[in-house]
Amino acid sequence: MLRKVYPISNADPLNCKSAKDSQNLLAELDVLFRSGSTENLHQAARLLNVTETFLHKLAPEIAASLVQRGTAIRHCRRIQREEARFHDFWQSFQELRFEGIYPARVKVLERMRRRTGKGLGFREAARFHKRAFDLAETSPYPSASPTRTSRD
């Protein structure tokens, strides 16, 4: 079976199907990058009306920086959401302590769910529970557990 041969175009060397040439796009990308108006590569590509792959070919350094910026922003947002969840957990933990009730993980989660309508997964709840006891300095966990020694 024969392949169809397409004529070679003298348009943009990067084969971009854009109304703008590469130099104009590069200048606009540089302005977007330096101004900080885009958080990641996807937003920059959408604003310039090109694909992310094209931006990687056009300006690999700027594209890599935009990818890294997007990763850092997502990481910061994840940490902020986690801290907000811990704050809710901590408030429920403290309420139970001030009422004279032992703040067991299940009780704290129940109180938090009633107060905020939000729940936590088992691992996150266990991690928050340990962190709350560490902050309260009344840890039920052994603070200095002896380390195991190898048998010789």
Rank of each mutant, 00 (worst) to 15 (best):
M1R: 06
L2W: 07
L2Y: 10
K4C: 12
K4H: 13
V5L: 07
Y6H: 07
I8A: 12
S9V: 06
S9T: 14
S9H: 12
A11C: 13
A11Y: 07
D12L: 04
D12I: 02
P13D: 07
C16E: 09
C16A: 14
S18Q: 07
A19I: 13
A19W: 14
K20Y: 03
D21P: 10
D21F: 11
Q23R: 08
Q23N: 09
Q23G: 01
N24C: 08
L25W: 00
L26K: 13
E28L: 15
L29D: 01
L29R: 05
L29N: 02
D30F: 04
V31C: 01
R34T: 09
S35Y: 03
S35N: 05
S37Q: 14
N40Q: 07
N40W: 08
N40H: 12
N40C: 09
L41W: 02
H42L: 11
H42F: 13
Q43A: 13
Q43V: 11
Q43F: 12
A44H: 09
A44N: 08
L47V: 11
L47I: 11
L47T: 09
L47K: 15
L48G: 02
N49D: 15
V50Y: 04
T53E: 12
F54D: 00
L55W: 10
L55C: 06
L58I: 07
L58Q: 02
A59M: 04
P60G: 09
E61N: 08
I62C: 14
I62G: 10
A64W: 07
S65Q: 10
Q68N: 01
Q68H: 01
R69L: 00
G70R: 10
A72S: 03
R74G: 04
R78G: 09
R78T: 08
I79S: 06
I79H: 11
I79W: 05
R81I: 01
R81K: 02
E83F: 03
E83T: 00
A84L: 10
R85Q: 14
R85N: 10
R85G: 01
D88M: 05
F89Y: 15
W90V: 00
W90K: 12
W90S: 13
S92A: 15
S92I: 03
Q94D: 09
E95R: 13
E95H: 08
E95K: 10
E95Q: 12
L96K: 05
F98Q: 15
F98G: 07
F98Y: 15
F98I: 15
F98S: 14
I101V: 15
R105K: 10
V106D: 12
V108L: 07
L109Q: 11
R111T: 14
R111P: 07
M112H: 03
M112C: 09
R113D: 02
R113I: 02
R114I: 02
T116P: 00
T116W: 05
G117M: 11
G119P: 06
L120E: 10
L120Q: 04
G121S: 03
G121K: 04
G121L: 01
F122C: 03
R123F: 10
E124Q: 15
E124M: 14
R127W: 09
H129P: 00
F133D: 01
F133Q: 03
D134F: 01
A136L: 04
A136G: 00
A136M: 03
P140G: 05
P140I: 05
Y141I: 01
P142S: 05
P142V: 11
A144Y: 12
S145C: 01
P146K: 14
P146F: 14
T147Y: 14
T149R: 04
R151Y: 07
